[in-house]
């Protein structure tokens, strides 16, 4: 069990981390970055798996099942498009 205040500390530190990591990103990477961060919150998949995993009623099962589908879409789709975008960035072999 994560205690209330420990949770608060995690929230605060994570928020600063996110802010700092992004603040140094050049504009040219903004779209891939938005896509990449979109992929990272695909971790919600883990949450939906747990939610569906301990579903008791049929209704819970349905909602959980739909949530797993959506989350898997978020994670896989986010990864595929980000990877495709980043694959294309290349330099002009030192020539400026």
């Amino acid at each position: 069990m994560i205690e209330g205040f420990v949770a608060l500390y995690i929230f605060m530190l994570a928020a600063f981390t996110g802010y700092e990591v992004i603040s140094k990103v050049p504009v040219i990477l903004h779209t891939p970055l938005m896509s990449g961060s979109n992929f990272i919150h695909g971790i919600v998949l883990v949450g939906t798996m747990v939610a569906l995993g301990h579903a008791e009623t049929t209704a819970q099962m349905w909602v959980g099942f739909i949530a797993v589908i959506l989350a898997a879409g978020n994670a896989v789709g986010g990864y595929v498009v980000t990877e495709r975008m980043l694959e294309m960035f290349k330099s002009s072999k030192g020539a400026k």
């Binding site: 949770a7 995690i10 994570a14 981390t17 990591v21 603040s23 990272i40 919150h41 971790i43 747990v50």
Partner: peptide
Amino acid sequence: AVGLKGLVLDNAALMIAGIVVGAAGTLL
């Protein structure tokens, strides 16, 4: 939202990833 669900489910991975994205997305 994902970060908040991490709290509900007691799941630190969700909390950290969710809030990092929440903050980064806000800045963006």
